[in-house]
Write a protein that binds this DNA or RNA. Structure first.
Length: 87
DNA sequence: GTTGAGCGTT
């Protein structure tokens, strides 16, 4: 089983490869993506990572509250995006 | 600078 992870407070220069590299150290990363504004193309400062539950739990404990690229990371389980309508 | 977007059906 895999878990969806939310990663916030990222630096503008952080990309999907950076996230994947970070989480890959704790387990097999299914997918990693940094969210950016699709209208402007600029980064939103947060991203999502999908990986195996065991690695995800370890990664959350290890990376949450730590400094990354000059910002303290916020790592958590991602909430379902059904919580907000998309028009 | 904080919880996506994609797909005409996951």
């Amino acid at each position: 089983m895999n878990k969806n992870i939310y990663v916030g407070n990222l630096s503008w220069g952080c990309t999907d490869q950076d996230l994947r590299n970070l989480f890959a150290d704790f387990g097999e990363v299914a997918s990693a993506r940094v969210i950016e504004d699709r209208e402007t193309g600029r980064s939103r400062g947060f991203g999502f990572v999908e990986m195996d539950a065991d690695g995800a739990t370890q990664a959350i404990e290890a990376l949450n509250g730590t400094s990354f690229q000059g910002r303290d990371l916020r790592v958590n389980e991602a909430q379902p995006r059904e919580r907000r309508p998309r028009y």
